[in-house]
Computed example of a mutant assay.
Amino acid sequence: MAGVRAASGPGLACTAGNVCAVARTVKRAFKYRFYPTREQAAELARTFGCVRLVYNMALQQALRHLQVAFTNFWAKRARYPVFKSRKRSRRSAEYTTSAFRFRDGELTLAKMLEPLEIVWSRPLPAGASPSTVTVSHDAAGRWFVSLLCNDVIEQVPAPGTGVVGIDAGIDSLLTLSTGEKITNPRHERADRQRLARVQRNLARKEKGSANRAKARLNVARIHARIADRRRDHLHKLTTRLVRENQTLVIEDLTVRNMVKNRSLARAISDAGWRQFRTMLEYRTDWHGRNLVAVDRWFPSSKLCSTCGARADRMPLNVRSWTCRCGTVHDRDVNAARNILAAGLAVTACGDGVRPQRETSRTGRSSAKQENPRATKGIPVL
């Protein structure tokens, strides 16, 4: 897995055929699995404990991480920072350049005599020199090392001027304005019976016993398998969408509020909408694409993408409907087309998309209002 941390300006990269393509230098974290020796695992466990202690006591090394936590809290992106727990907190430690040695493809951490046994599932960029190294130990008992280094990404132009509107859903993971529906793999549902069985087994174990620790590990492994499959699918999906289109339009969904619906929370969490958007954001930035987010209150499902008429109601159980103009709409395809049209309007006019809503100061909408005559006589669905 690779993630983006920071990016610098674009440059030019020329191929052997003297064809120059725009390239972008970004900071990418290349993550690999490794298998520590018994001594290395013990040393890392002590390091994780020190990191937790330093964070909780607000001393020097962890102040930057604590500052980020409070910054996210004040920006309303996270809750108030809490003390790190030995059982529930993520076990990880970050090493700066003075605390590790990377030489000849081998990584040796401070206070360790031998290099880590890393499974190099893919090569690092040529001449890469990691600036920081993060070691983590997940709940499933797996060890990972993440190396942050510079990488040059060629921004290959998209074929033509492709544009696409994307409607996120549950029955279909994504519906495109082209009419294509991408199947929802439902990774959690596929392993739901196995997960329920090991969770029942965990509940029967005595707290604090060795058998309970083994049962907890079995539960964590199934959760890890579900998360890995979901992440892999979203990586491939976002890569394909960014390569095929120059402009992508999505809805600005508030997943945090949507999962409060008990009937849909499990399905929404399994779909990974928030993770999908995060991947789409940094990939469009890498490759010079345009990503437009339409306001969450835009009535994409209620509008007729042919004549612009608006239905008064559109319950979730209505999957297709007929407009007054005679057009029969698939609910999701129609929504994707409306999202695309709204996004292109935002790009062209530079205005927000909030039909039928008023601002608190001016009393006027930030976008054009629909013609009231267009919605007159529309049947209630």
Rank of each mutant, 00 (worst) to 15 (best):
R33I: 08
R33W: 12
R33S: 07
R33H: 13
F34P: 13
F34S: 04
F34D: 10
F34H: 07
Y35G: 02
P36D: 04
P36L: 05
P36E: 06
T37Y: 03
R38S: 09
E39G: 00
Q40H: 04
Q40V: 02
A41H: 01
A41S: 05
A42T: 10
E43C: 01
E43N: 02
E43G: 01
E43K: 10
E43I: 08
L44S: 00
L44Y: 02
L44M: 05
T47R: 11
T47A: 11
F48N: 03
F48P: 05
C50S: 04
C50W: 08
C50F: 06
C50N: 09
V51Y: 09
R52F: 09
L53F: 10
L53C: 06
L53H: 12
L53R: 12
V54C: 04
V54N: 11
V54K: 04
V54I: 04
Y55G: 01
Y55T: 06
Y55E: 10
N56I: 11
N56S: 08
M57S: 08
M57Q: 14
M57L: 08
A58P: 02
A58F: 08
A58V: 05
A58C: 07
A58G: 01
A58H: 13
L59Y: 13
L59G: 02
Q60F: 10
Q61I: 10
Q61F: 11
Q61L: 09
A62K: 03
A62D: 15
L63A: 13
R64E: 15
H65L: 08
H65Y: 13
L66M: 14
L66D: 11
Q67W: 09
Q67N: 12
Q67A: 14
V68Y: 10
V68T: 14
V68N: 07
V68P: 00
V68S: 07
V68Q: 14
A69N: 13
A69I: 03
A69G: 04
A69K: 03
F70S: 00
F70K: 07
T71P: 00
N72L: 15
N72P: 04
N72Q: 14
F73R: 04
W74T: 05
W74R: 03
W74E: 05
W74N: 02
W74H: 06
A75C: 11
A75V: 00
A75G: 05
A75Q: 15
A75R: 15
K76L: 15
K76I: 09
K76E: 15
R77V: 08
R77C: 06
R77Y: 14
R77I: 09
A78C: 01
A78Y: 03
R79T: 11
R79N: 13
Y80A: 08
P81G: 05
P81T: 05
P81F: 10
P81H: 07
V82K: 15
V82H: 11
F83R: 11
K84W: 12
K84V: 06
K84H: 04
S85M: 04
S85R: 13
S85G: 08
R86V: 02
R86H: 09
K87F: 11
R88C: 01
R88S: 09
R88E: 11
R88D: 15
R88F: 08
R88V: 02
S89P: 01
S89W: 12
S89Q: 03
R90C: 02
R90I: 14
R90H: 07
R90T: 15
R91Q: 14
R91H: 13
R91E: 14
S92V: 01
S92C: 11
S92P: 00
A93L: 00
A93N: 06
A93M: 02
A93C: 12
